[in-house]
Design a protein around this nucleic acid. Sequence first.
RNA 1: GGAGAGUUGGGUGAGUGGCUGAAACCACCAGUUUGCUAAACUGACGUACGGGAUUUCCGUACCGGGGGUUCGAAUCCCCCACUCUCCGCCA
Length: 423
Amino acid sequence: MLTIKQLRDDREAAIRRLAKKGVDAASVIDKIEKLDDRRKAIQHELDEMLAQQNQASKQIGALMGQGRREEAEAKKAEVAALKERSNALNAEFKEVSDALQAAIVSLPNFPADIVPEGKTAADNLVVKMVEDHRTLPEDALPHWELARKYDLIDFDLGVKLTGAGFPVYKGKGARLQRALINFFLERNTRAGYLEIEPPIMVNEASGFGTGQLPDKEGQMYHATVDNFYLIPTAEVPVTNIYRDVILDEKDFPIKMTAYTPCFRREAGSYGKDVRGLNRLHQFDKVEIVQLSLPEKSYAALDEMVAHVETLVQALELPYRILRLCGGDMSFTSALTYDFEVYSKAQKRWLEVSSVSNFESFQANRLKLRYKDANKKTQLAHTLNGSSLALPRIVAALLENNQTPEGIRIPEALIPFTGFDLIK
RNA sequence: GGAGAGUUGGGUGAGUGGCUGAAACCACCAGUUUGCUAAACUGACGUACGGGAUUUCCGUACCGGGGGUUCGAAUCCCCCACUCUCCGCCA
C-alpha cells in the first residue's frame, strides 16, 4: 500500500500517476486527507484525555496510600466521567482509522515514469525480441499432443486424482520437471541468490503482507480448519521472511531464490487459455526475490531482468521482453517486465516470467524497513520475478524442439536431464 | 490428540496490581584513557502515532495476539497462537 505521505506530499502528481493505471483517485485522495486530518485531531484530543486519566489514577494511588479514602473516591468518580468520554472517542478513532486504512489499501501502486500509457496487453512495449529461424515440420503438434505421444504428461489421470489443472508428469516428463527446477536453482544460486525452501502453506498475516489478502482471497486455496492458505507463488513465504524486520543499510541487497509448487484457483478462466499446460491449478516455479535500498532498486530490477534473460537464452527459446503498460500491470507493481516465449505450434506468445519492482508498496504492508545513514527508519524496496515458471517453458520446449526423431533437449539442460532426446 | 510449564527490549533475564517503558548483565553505538589491540570508565541504546521545535522536548499506545476485571494491569480472568517437557500417534 502507498503511504499517506506519498499521497499528501504532491496530490496532483499522485492523481496523475494513478491515472496511468486507469484509476481516478481524486475523490479517494480527498477522502484520505479528510480522514487523516480527522484521525490526527481525534488522537490529539484522546491522548490528552488519557493523560488526564493516567494522572488522576496516580493521584488515587497516592491518596489511598495516605489513607485519604474520601478524596480518592471523588477522584474515581472524576475518572469514570473522563473514561466514558474517552471510550466514545476511542471508538470513533478506530472507526476513522479503519476507514482510512480501507481507503489507502484500495489504491494501487504508482507506476514508474517509464511505464507506457495504455489499457490492455496490446499497449505493452516490446523492449526486446529474439526470434528463432528454425522451422518446424508441417505437421507440428501442440504440446498436449506431444505429451500424449511421448507419454510425458497425463492430464486425464490428474483429473482422476484431483481435478482439471493438476497434471501428472511421468517418466522423462517428470525428469524434465526436476531437471528444469535444478537448472534454474543452480543458475540463480550462482548469481548470488540464497536458496530457500519455504513452507507452501502460509498464515493470514503472510497473505496480507504480500497483498494476496484480502483482495485475492478467492484465488487461493484455503485450508479452513487451520486457516492456512496454499501459496500462489514462492514470493509470499519468501518475502514474508522479512515481515516486521528492521534491517541495517549494510544488509542490502538481499537476494533469495526458492522452488515451490504454486497453487491457483484461477476462477473464471476457460477455453484455449487453459488448454494443456497453459494454465494450471498446480504448477512448479522457481522464484527470485530481492530486497533493495530505494536508490538501488531499479538497478536491481535491470539485473534481475538480465539474469532471467540468460536462462531463456540458455534454453534456446525464441523470446521477447515486454514492459507492461499502466493498464496491464498488477495492482502492486511499479514497473514490470514480462518474458514471453514463442510457441510455434500454438502460434502464440506464452508468458513465462514477470519481473517487478514494487518499490515500497509491499514493504509498507510488510513493515519491512531499514535504518539509513542518519539512523532514520525507512521503507525498503522489494522486487521479485519468476526464474522461471515451468509449465509454459515445458510447452515451448516440447513444441519448438520437436523433430522427426523426437524432442531435442537444449545443450545446457542435458547435464540435468541425463538425456538429450525424448523419443 | 491428552496433561503440565512457559512466551518480557538485539540476547540472557528480574519484575508483591500503582514508585516499571520496564532492574541487572551481555551485545551494539559514541566518547575518555591508551603507541596499536585489549581492558577500564562515561554516555547513549525499542517501535508506532500525535503535539511542539524542525538541534535538545512533551503526550499516548505497545511486555506473544485479541478481549475482559479495575480509578490503575507486564502482573488478575477468558479466548487464540506459538515454544518446551511427558504420554499417545506417526514419515
